[in-house]
Design a protein around this nucleic acid. Structure first.
Lengths: 183, 183
DNA sequence: AGTAAAAAACAGACCGGTTGGTATGGTGGA
DNA sequence: TCCACCATACCAACCGGTCTGTTTTTTACT
């Protein structure tokens, strides 16, 4: 793996775990085992440029991950349940939901940096789009599909937040059980 | 107003706006127009103690706010709609949802400090309890009431996150429209 | 009531450590 | 020889926290 990709991969997970301000450059450098000169060679505009690149990389990763799940299951409900199940398994095994959420960055940076905010917005949009398209195929009207896709995005993101605060996967499990009523 | 309350009030809104790591002590001191000695007199254990105190104060404020709304409306649906409406008005007027959410602190600190995480968990619990009790009065079974209360908490919190990233109140509006189907 | 001692509240200098960022110089391959 | 790539020394600014000293308020006693 080339140095730039290495930086992006490691920085992404550090940002997810500790947030933007919570992740120091030195921490990234040590984890990558590279020097400051190397980082600033690949990201001349510094930390924020790195963050945005990470968000884009994360965007691609999450999007393809979800897409794959949604292609494997015939209905939105099955796909959503499978997706949440994957979240739960990951959470109970790893004790973290980093890798699937980036809410810390949103709430940290949304009001401070428009480029970062836009990168996050695009990520949510992509996820919501996947839901939306599947719902339309399922036979929902575009209006309904849009509403439900929004609700899915919000409740899953909120559910992850609750899981983190409670150190328990119960919130996501409860949401998963309630989804059939919505679909 | 005594100094301690002043510190708590100002620090609370700063923490909500910029997160925990994003808020420097110096910033708090300047905003309060006090000295470091004064702050450390009232909060001898420093920044984290201050944060937890702020979360408890926020807990009381949000809880009584929501309680008041839920007492003024006869059904959960009406109350929820009124509450979201208030969020939307505030967001479109102030451009921020600080004051109603603290997701930045959750996602920043949940994995780093158990006391902070517990303070946040308690806050979510209190909110969810208000929903739950009203739902039971509405005639839902305890099981259903619990599920729906969870869903409300998650989707509203997620909705706020989406509003922040999109700089638009649309997500919360959409969620508000979809609530009748759930209740 | 008057006063002195004690406690609470506040101010600000100072500390070691870290932050993100820059400037310069070296190295290896095309 | 040139240039992408990397290493290192250095910087001012800031971080949270400690320290000592001063002011203000409360308490206790005559």
């Amino acid at each position: 793996m080339d140095t730039k990709s290495l930086i992006i991969d490691i920085a992404t997970s550090l940002f997810q775990q500790n947030g933007y301000k919570g992740t120091g450059l030195s921490e990234i450098l040590k984890a990558c085992n590279i020097s400051k000169g190397s980082l600033y060679h690949h990201f001349p505009n510094g930390k924020e440029e790195l963050l945005i690149t990470c968000l884009q990389s994360l965007n691609a990763a999450i999007t393809t991950d979800i897409k794959e799940i949604f292609e494997r299951h015939s209905t939105t409900q099955e796909a959503t349940n499978a997706m949440i199940e994957k979240l739960i398994v990951n959470f109970e095994k790893e004790g973290t939901l980093a890798g699937y959420t980036f809410s810390s960055i949103v709430s940290e940076m949304a009001s401070l940096s428009d480029p970062v905010r836009n990168a996050c917005a695009q990520l949510y949009n992509n996820i919501q789009d996947i839901y939306f398209n599947k719902l339309v195929v399922d036979g929902f009207s575009e209006d309904n599909a849009f509403s439900i896709a929004l609700m899915l995005t919000a409740s899953i993101e909120g559910g992850m937040l609750l899981c983190l605060t409670q150190k328990s996967a119960e919130p996501l499990k409860g949401i998963s059980k309630l989804l059939p009523k919505m679909l």
